[in-house]
Simulated assay, not measured.
Amino acid sequence: MAQTPQKTVQENASSLVHDITTDLASSLPPNIPFDKFKSVFITAVLNNPKILSCDPVTVKTALLKCAQDNLLPDGREAAIIPYNNKMKQDDKWVKVVTAQYTPMIQGIRKRAKELGGISEIIAECVHENDDFDYSLGDNPFIQHKPAKLGSKRGDIIGAYAVFKEDDGRVVHRDVMDREAIEKARAVSKNQDGDLWTIWYGEACKKTVVRRGSKSVPSIPDALRDIVTRDDELVDFSLPKSAPRTPDNPLLEQQPVRTGEQAPRQEARQRSAEAAEQNGAGSEVGESGQLPAPANKALMENFSSAMLRLKGDNLVKGRENFWNKNTSVHKPTELEIKLEDEIYKAHVNRDNNKLSVDDLKSHVAELIEEVYGCTSS
């Protein structure tokens, strides 16, 4: 098949940007002119014409996310990566190529400096011929000396991240070996996509930064959102290839589904899937079987966890949260309804029917209404 002429590629890329000019211009910061953003994207498409084979809506969405994060889709700060996906069309699942926006390490480091709080994030891969040592405990340290220039460094055997606050103080170090990194890859829906096959080293760095960020409370919310963007590609239900171990680096701890526990969880999953098809669920699991919040704080944590999720991961994240936070406390009818109302609010937020600020206010009112009248 003949290659797409360069002029046609440029025209098609330019057309995609033109369709969302107003939204892009309002999302970009003053230091990134619209024309520069457009030019960078066209160059990215020329370097990877496969982007034009993606569903146009997903390309536009990816560009808007990139602009909102104040990054350029140049392959260094961020990348638009084609991703083989399935979408429902006319009640049938069909294979489509969608565009996935992926912030890169350089972009994450750039935004860390701009946002403050965390002024520097060091992320590097360790190769088998490097000299590497680290220690935990009261006097943690990381020492890394790459193999001599001109010599082969060998395969990647791990990666590490160091987080520094504005005053230069190291607030956290995280180290992952190759096995832990591959566990993270196993729960990615795009584990054989461009990020993991073409930019494997970048994927390793991003994985350790993402895990390490969980232990750094001083990270600004805007930066945390960028670091966890790839959560949209994490399958929280865990495929068969992913080890169901509590140390999976991209998942919080959850119980292994065995014995009598499995049918109950599978019933909740079927109910959650039905809720997804209807836009929002009316209940989860059997009455009285729902893993219930024992207090106000748990409901607030549930809403915070859902705030980081979008699309299909809302349903999976909901299930995952209650699997981790099962309580012996039997839920009241009000609590069951409250959990469902919070979930519906996040579905509306994901469908752009509710802003984040309005969602937070709405959820706060819901929680206060329930616990205000039940706390006595």
Rank of each mutant, 00 (worst) to 15 (best):
L63H: 03
L63C: 07
L63R: 02
L63V: 06
L63S: 04
L64H: 01
L64M: 01
K65L: 14
K65M: 09
K65V: 07
C66S: 03
C66I: 02
C66N: 02
A67C: 04
A67D: 01
A67R: 07
Q68R: 08
Q68T: 05
Q68D: 04
Q68F: 04
D69F: 09
D69E: 09
D69G: 08
D69H: 10
D69L: 02
N70E: 09
L71T: 06
L71Y: 00
L71C: 01
L72K: 00
L72E: 07
L72H: 01
L72Q: 06
P73Q: 00
P73Y: 03
D74M: 03
D74V: 04
D74N: 08
G75V: 06
G75L: 03
G75N: 00
G75F: 06
R76N: 14
R76G: 10
E77R: 01
E77L: 01
E77S: 09
E77H: 09
E77W: 06
A78I: 09
A78N: 09
A79T: 03
A79P: 02
A79Y: 09
A79Q: 10
I80N: 06
I80E: 06
I80C: 05
I80W: 06
I80G: 04
I80L: 00
I81R: 10
I81F: 08
I81A: 02
P82V: 08
P82T: 02
P82K: 02
Y83A: 11
Y83H: 14
Y83F: 15
Y83I: 11
Y83M: 13
N84T: 15
N84E: 15
N84W: 13
N84I: 13
N85A: 14
N85L: 11
N85E: 13
K86F: 14
K86V: 14
M87N: 15
M87A: 15
K88V: 14
K88Q: 15
K88G: 11
K88C: 13
Q89P: 10
Q89C: 13
Q89Y: 13
D90P: 08
D90Y: 11
D90M: 10
D91V: 10
K92Y: 11
K92L: 13
K92P: 07
K92F: 11
W93P: 09
W93R: 11
W93L: 12
V94W: 08
V94G: 07
K95Y: 13
K95D: 15
K95L: 14
V96S: 09
V96R: 13
V96K: 10
V96P: 07
V97R: 12
V97G: 08
T98P: 08
T98D: 15
A99C: 06
A99Y: 03
A99S: 05
Q100R: 13
Q100E: 10
Q100P: 00
Q100M: 12
Y101N: 00
Y101L: 08
Y101W: 00
Y101S: 00
T102G: 04
T102I: 11
T102K: 10
P103Q: 00
P103L: 02
P103C: 05
P103S: 02
M104T: 05
M104F: 03
M104E: 05
M104V: 05
M104N: 04
I105W: 07
I105F: 06
I105H: 08
Q106C: 11
Q106K: 15
Q106M: 14
G107A: 00
G107H: 01
G107N: 02
